[in-house]
């Protein structure tokens, strides 16, 4: 064991202590978040479980009937179907316009001050409080075009809400396609559209899908814009289509959670479990999609 004292002149005690302190601080912060989330989920699960056990709320009724004035007959299906309709219409309204704008901004628009202004404002739009979109749709579509408080109006509000998110995340996905691929395509005599259609979009589509799903997972939990537009808080019927009045999962939760009487609280908890399950599966799908395709670029 020669070389004793070889490193004696290097004093790392303090640097290392600082390193350890910082490590513990980071660990504590992340644990705080996880623990809070864990408590929240446990609490909701517990409240939800009490519904069928203590108040004999039937799970079948809950999942197959619309809401009702009597807690033992109240179901969540009207709200669930309302949310499904909302999501389908929201995707149709926002996806093509959103991806189209992203393609224009990334692939066609010259790099001018106006383009940069538009891009900066898109990022701002993504941060606008959701209730503002509800107000806009209330003024323009519900009252202005006298659409009334129909499902379509609700999905317009949600589509406006998610559009900037879809545009920004699609732009990121398009930007992640190496420019060498575009060069390779145009050097073989492809037009710009051929390059976009056959090289850029196929490479970017997993990223675009991931962004869209995450945006929708946010939209499905939005309450304020729907209340603003005039959603029925308690969906006592199943919605018949885009022009019908409508309820939704989050507004139903809001209604039950604020109703007097202990049974309603448990119904709200059960509804939250369903909504959380849907949101978490959407997020999981997005993560899976990303992991699956990420190595391909």
């Amino acid at each position: 064991m020669g070389g004793d004292g070889l490193f004696e002149d290097v004093d790392l005690t303090w640097v290392k202590r600082k390193g350890t302190a910082f490590y513990l601080l980071c660990l504590a912060s992340s644990l705080f978040g996880i623990v809070m989330l864990g408590f929240l989920i446990l609490d909701v699960l517990y409240e939800a479980a009490l519904g069928p056990i203590e108040f004999e709320i039937s799970l079948t009724t809950f999942l197959t009937d619309p809401a009702s004035r009597h807690p033992e007959q109240a179901g969540y299906l009207g709200a669930i179907l309302g949310s499904v309709w909302l999501m389908v219409l929201t995707v149709i309204l926002s996806f093509f316009i959103g991806v189209g704008s992203a393609i224009y901004l990334e692939e066609y628009a010259p790099d001018t001050r106006i383009t940069r202004l538009i891009e900066a404002n898109l990022t701002n739009l993504a941060g606008v409080p959701s209730i503002v979109y509800g107000l806009l749709v209330l003024a323009v579509f519900v009252n202005g075009f006298t659409l009334g408080s129909i499902l379509l109006a609700g999905s317009i509000a949600l589509a406006l809400l998610v559009m900037p998110i879809i545009i920004v995340s699609s732009q990121e996905a398009l930007r992640a396609v190496p420019s060498g691929m575009r060069d390779g395509s145009s050097a073989t005599g492809a037009t710009r559209w051929q390059t976009i259609r056959h090289v850029v979009l196929p490479a970017a589509i997993p990223g675009i899908m991931t962004g869209t799903i995450l945006a929708l997972a946010r939209a499905i939990g939005e309450t304020a814009p729907l209340i603003m537009v005039g959603a029925i808080l308690s969906a006592i019927r199943l919605p018949s289509g885009p022009f019908d009045s409508f309820g939704s999962m989050p507004t139903q939760i809001y209604y039950w959670a604020t109703a007097p009487g202990p049974e309603w609280g448990h119904l709200a908890a059960m509804a939250i479990v369903v909504l959380l399950a849907v949101m978490l599966s959407m997020n999981a799908a997005a993560v899976l999609l990303r992991n699956r395709y990420e190595k391909d670029l």
């Binding site: 190496p178 060498g180 691929m181 060069d183 390779g184 395509s185 145009s186 050097a187 073989t188 005599g189 492809a190 037009t191 090289v199 196929p202 490479a203 391909d296 670029l297």
Partner: peptide, 20 residues
């Protein structure tokens, strides 16, 4: 330029295969 590039092909400095 699209027509021109159909007559003048190019191999680039960095390989750029498509994800196909």
């Amino acid at each position: 330029p699209v027509a021109l590039r159909r007559k003048i092909g190019q191999v680039f400095q960095r390989p750029n295969p498509f994800p196909k």
